[in-house]
């Protein structure tokens, strides 16, 4: 009997084996692409971070263990660029969220041209970051910038201000450019979330005597919380890894005022041609981001809203 069962099962097992093989084979191209473009670079970066990899010394790549990590962690520039990044993120992320929310609330109203505005508002986000950077560098130029011209013609300033030549105004300029570039995306996310909030909740709030601010605080904001969390995490990641605006607008200056951590990693690789330091820095940045995101997720754990 048992033998019969085994004999009967054999064709089924063969078929199941063929199916498994077929499944693996069909997955293989995708797996190879993922391995080629993600796993290999990642593994190679780990290798780089554990070796002395200075491009100008191409024949000397000894294994150095965690030396690159230790050197990077002990560097003054890690401290300075981390501080600059924290200041930048602390200013830019809330500003992007506030801008996005304000625009979303505005576009959620029906008025003439609102449909057109919903499309136009995305333009700064769709523009390549390098172009945005060039535009803002020109706007903030100390000698012939549009901002100085505008403020001067309005009588607000009597002497042109070299916005990108002093640390405080250069940092502020970078934040403004970041808000201009990232704000529209946040606005579109939040607008989409606003449009899913049931109207009945506002009607109920009105019946209970809740007006504009009260409805915003007790209905809109709680209902937006999951989307706000996503936007907050996304914008924090974007702020921490911001590189292109720095590259085009300030080159990390004046001094090291706008040398964000991603700029520091870039200079280690391309200016100091030290791939080992650059790879170690990249892993440290990624690790720090994971910690920040975990903190966010824990702090903003949302109640069951939907």
């Amino acid at each position: 009997m048992a033998g019969q069962v085994r004999r009967r099962a054999a064709p089924g097992q063969a078929s199941s084996h063929r199916e498994r093989t077929y499944a693996y084979l069909t997955l293989l191209p995708a797996l190879l692409i993922v391995a080629g473009f993600t796993v290999y670079p990642l593994v190679y970066s780990v290798y780089l971070s554990l070796h002395r990899e200075i491009l100008t010394d191409p024949l000397n790549h000894p294994f150095t263990g965690l030396t690159n990590y230790a050197q990077v962690l002990g560097s003054y520039y890690l401290v300075s660029s981390t501080l600059s990044t924290i200041i930048f993120a602390a200013l830019a992320v809330p500003a992007v969220l506030a801008f996005g929310l304000a625009v979303a609330l505005l576009l959620n109203q029906s008025f003439a041209g609102s449909a057109f505005l919903r499309v136009v508002i995305l333009l700064p986000w769709a523009m390549p970051a390098v172009i945005s950077g060039i535009v803002w560098r020109w706007i903030f130029n100390g000698d012939y910038g549009v901002l100085n011209n505008l403020l001067s013609s309005l009588g607000i300033i009597h002497q042109y201000i070299p916005w990108l030549s002093t640390p405080a105004t250069a940092r502020a300029g970078l934040v403004v450019a970041q808000v201009w570039r990232e704000g529209p995306l946040a606005a579109i996310f939040l607008l989409a979330a606003l449009q899913t909030i049931p109207r009945e909740l506002y009607s109920a709030a009105k019946v209970d005597g809740g007006g504009g601010w009260s409805a915003f605080r007790h209905v809109t904001l709680p209902m937006l919380r999951p989307t706000l969390s996503i936007v907050l995490i996304y914008e924090t990641i974007v702020a921490v890894v911001t590189f292109d605006l720095v590259y085009v607008m300030t080159g990390g200056g004046p001094g090291d005022a706008t040398s964000l951590i991603s700029w520091y990693a870039y200079t280690e690789v391309f200016k100091f041609v030290n791939l080992g330091h650059g790879a170690a820095l990249a892993f440290l940045i990624a690790a720090a981001l994971v910690v920040v995101i975990l903190i966010y997720l824990r702090a903003l754990r949302s109640e069951e809203l939907y």
């Binding site: 130029n141 100390g142 000698d143 042109y160 070299p162 990108l164 030549s165 200056g253 004046p254």
Partner: peptide, 16 residues
């Protein structure tokens, strides 16, 4: 010294 010097590359200096 013009403070904009700290952001001035060759062409802005020439234009100035």
């Amino acid at each position: 010294l013009d403070p904009a010097s700290l952001q001035s590359q060759e062409i802005p200096v020439v234009k100035g």
